[in-house]
Amino acid sequence: MATHDEIEIEVLRYHPETDSEPSYRTYRVPFAHETSVLQGLQYIKDRLDGSLTFRWSCRMAICGSCGMMINGVPNLTCSAFLREYHPGKLRIEPLAHLPIERDLAVDQTDFLEKLASIQPYIIPAESKAVDEGPFTQTPAQRERFYQYSECINCLLCYAACPQYGLDSGFLGPAALALLHRYNSDSRDVGKADRMPIVNAQEGVWACTLVGYCSEVCPKGVDPASAVNRNKVISTLDYFFRFMAPRGASE
């Protein structure tokens, strides 16, 4: 690593075995033009303090492991660079609104349970044997759900959502975006099964369209649009549910 400069990184530390609450610790880290924030943390762990705990894996912004708060903003540390913060310093904290497991690692179980609850899989109209070949799906049909399928489950949007922070019962941006992804897929007919989740207070109705979720999404998914389009869908369903003929789709 061609080292050009040093930067100060302040890290929130919390150890469940010994600490009653988190506290900050500061490290000085050398960096080059291409050094990512993640590599800065790896430097600390390799050379300064092996006990610093954080998750990482792919280093290319697709596995969704390394989301953290960098100077108060949710971000993937593998694709943020130390040079962007120099000559200032960095304050790195675990993703906001999620319980801290240890240091920079948060507890993800709540999201995983919510993801499972939305039935995130194709519910087909009728079972089709593999031998019958693939479903036909035009590029236009695919485009109707595709952006929502690009969610990497990094939880940055949960760290961005104050409503989730205030009430973790809220299903949250990513789970609702994925719910919308399946409801919008031409191969799926599971919408009726998923609408009760949407219609609940903990579904779309806990959202006040802060909009920060879409702002911080590293993959250009727009969870806010998924949630708020479903408010319209849920509202229409609320008023017109008794008028629609019950049958095929129920």
Partner: peptide, 13 residues
């Protein structure tokens, strides 16, 4: 099944 919210009434207004 989760309880349906009456929020649509207020949200629509």
């Amino acid at each position: 099944m989760p309880k349906r919210s009456n929020e649509p009434v207020f949200w629509a207004l």
